[in-house]
Write a protein that binds this DNA or RNA. Structure first.
Length: 611
DNA sequence: TGCTCCCGCCATGGG
DNA sequence: CCCATGGCGGGAGCA
């Protein structure tokens, strides 16, 4: 395939097809023996509040002293009461699912090891539909973190190819002049703030964009050696999610300011499609897909949600993360602290008096689930490619994990509360402010001494605060290793027009209670909602599916920026000329309006405001 | 009310 | 026809 930038990428080489064993962490199974004496408790909906002094109740008591998040994790794990119901729904989120997925694989896989991924196995072990796995895989594919081997089979590359991928994407993005296009769109939107004849102007503007910047079609950007296998994959008509994902990342890579709103992204992406697609349904669909992609990218910690306040109102947004260190300095990546670790450290070890809603701490749930999943794998036969649906025997070990977490938490709380005293975390609502979704503690979680036989990698893409389960070869009992915090990162300044930032108070994405899965949820009426046949999907007119939908008005163009900001997609080179270089005759120079403080200037790496 | 995004229908295309 | 894949948008949940 030939990328738009003219670089010729190597046609499909032979990617060594490793024999069909799914990648599994090489872990011992002694833990199973350790926990073998414990009997698997019966999951119950109604567990008496007062129980006999059993290991379970013991652990419960321990957990009761922990933060709500940990308690939540516990309840999920045990399937206790309504909490379990709520949380099991949270597991469905794409971001969390991606977390769980990523936690299964090392950032930098050993090439000597079989890194195959079997979709069936993954879907089964994560207990999700294959459809969701496809969403994740498509985004990961777009970053060349995985590549397809064959039907149902992928190869895991991890972040090893990320630097190359991002460099390529940036190059393509620059050649596509995305930076200029975004500037035009932003300027256009700004003009509309003053002049509210939005509808017509939008169309006119988009047509202008077509005329000038308009790169119509863009293929999937490949890397040498990471080509796609399997005819059906490449023959699919547009592969929009993969391509969209790449374009989306490109926008971050070339954008100045490094804030990319979803609507701007959607406009650009739509602009590259047929003009006919530019109806509001298309826009809405594009936005939905961008949410999906953004969730995966968030799980990868390449972007991060923040809130942005524009002139027209406060909008949800995303704040970028330290992609450059995460992707470029790959060698040190696994040892490198995460920029967002502070977030979850604070969440996890929040002071008892601090009221927190579960909705604000997906990361904690992610964390716990990642542990559980890892543990499940650990407790499963490690050499068997057999699909693992569930493993009740993991229950004791999960209890041990949670106990370990709680212990660490309890140990940490005193230390953390000390840190809080010196912590500066104003939650400003001032007009030019950015806060990370969650407050961050500067405290550094001490790493427990690794026992011999510890896993050789730390799946950092797991929850920002990553407990890493260690095999129990020589040390009994589980270990949770928390990656230390990152050093403050110097932030480049850049101009943002007309944006203010606020703290959403949300670490990852949204609130917890999602709809139930499959037929159990409130919206489970698939047959009743069966859509009428819509004919060919290639038609430009939007599909008419559920007639009941007519009660809902068609979407109006989202006014919100729904901004995504990246922080280190940029190399210094790409610090754009876009701000000063009109791309075409109709390009309007974008004034550096209302820009006293750049988002990142106002946001140090710990998410606290400089005041 | 609008944002967010889960969910699953069903189109597509290879075998 | 079967199956893997994934486009797509309804609508639930929530702020």
């Amino acid at each position: 395939m030939r990328a738009n930038n003219g670089d010729v990428f190597v046609e499909p080489q032979t990617l060594a097809k490793a024999a069909g064993k799914v990648y599994k962490c090489p872990v011992p199974t002694e833990s199973q023996q350790d926990m073998g004496s414990l009997t698997t408790p019966t999951k119950g909906r109604n567990v008496p509040s007062c129980e006999p002094w059993t290991p379970t109740s013991n652990l419960k008591m321990l957990i009761s002293a922990a933060s709500p998040e940990i308690q939540l994790c516990f309840f999920i794990d045990l399937g206790l009461g309504e909490e379990s119901e709520k949380i099991s729904r949270k597991e469905k989120s794409l971001g969390l699912l991606c977390h769980k997925f990523l936690a299964r694989y090392p950032d930098y896989p050993n090439p000597a090891v079989n890194n195959d991924i079997c979709l069936d196995d993954v879907a089964g072990e994560l207990n999700v539909e294959r459809r969701r796995i496809y969403d994740i895989m498509n985004v990961l594919e777009s970053l060349h973190m995985v590549s397809r081997l064959a039907k149902n089979r992928y190869t895991w590359h991890g972040r090893s190819k990320l630097p190359q991928t991002l460099a390529t994407l940036r190059k393509v993005g620059e050649e596509q002049r995305y930076g200029q296009q975004m500037q035009q769109i932003r300027q256009h939107s700004f003009d509309q703030e003053l002049d509210f004849d939005e509808e017509k102007e939008n169309e006119e503007f988009l047509q202008e964009m077509d005329g000038e910047g308009g790169q119509k079609e863009m293929c999937f950007v490949e890397l040498p050696g990471v080509e796609f296998k399997g005819a059906s994959v490449n023959s699919r008509k547009d592969k929009s999610l993969r391509v969209m994902s790449q374009k989306f990342v490109m926008l971050f890579l070339v954008s100045t300011p490094r804030v990319v709103s979803l609507d701007v992204a959607a406009k650009i992406l739509i602009g590259e499609d047929q003009i006919m697609d530019r109806d509001k349904n298309k826009f809405k669909t594009k936005i939905r897909r961008l949410y999906d992609i953004a969730n995966v990218l968030s799980s990868l910690e390449l972007i991060k949600k923040v809130h942005v306040t524009e002139d027209r109102g406060r909008k949800p947004a995303f704040n970028g993360l330290d992609l450059r260190t995460s992707s470029v300095s790959s060698a040190s990546r696994t040892l490198e602290p995460r920029s967002s670790i502070d977030n979850c450290t604070k969440n996890l070890f929040s002071s008892p008096g601090e009221k927190r809603g579960f909705t604000r701490h997906h990361s904690l749930v992610k964390l716990a689930k990642s542990i559980q999943d890892d543990r499940r794998k650990i407790n499963s036969a490690p050499t068997s490619p057999i699909k693992i649906i569930s493993n009740d025997s993991s229950y004791p070990s999960k209890m041990a994990q949670l106990a370990a977490i709680c212990k660490i938490q309890l140990d940490q709380q005193s230390k953390d509360s000390l840190d809080k005293l010196t912590e500066k975390r104003p939650v400003s609502k001032s007009s030019m402010s950015v806060t990370e979704p969650q407050a961050k503690s500067r405290s550094v979680v001490q790493l427990p001494v690794l026992p011999a036989g510890a896993l050789p990698y730390i799946p950092h893409q797991c929850s920002p605060l990553i407990p890493v389960l260690l095999p129990q070869q020589q040390v009994r009992g589980p270990y949770a290793v928390y990656v230390a915090h990152p050093p403050p990162r110097p932030v480049p300044s850049f101009a943002v027009r007309s944006m203010t930032f606020e703290s959403p108070g949300d670490c990852t994405k949204r609130s917890p209670v999602a709809s139930g899965s499959g037929g159990t949820g409130p919206r489970s009426s698939p047959k009743a909602l069966k859509r009428p046949s819509s004919g060919k999907s290639s038609e430009n007119s939007p599909k008419v599916r559920r007639s009941a939908a007519s009660s809902k008005p068609l979407l109006t163009t989202p006014k919100g920026p729904q901004c995504i900001q990246h922080s280190l997609f940029h190399t210094p080179v790409s610090t754009l000329t876009a701000m000063t270089t009109p791309v075409a005759t109709k390009t309007v120079f974008i004034p550096q309006r209302k820009l006293d403080v750049s988002p990142e200037d106002s946001l140090n790496q710990n998410g606290s405001h400089p005041h």
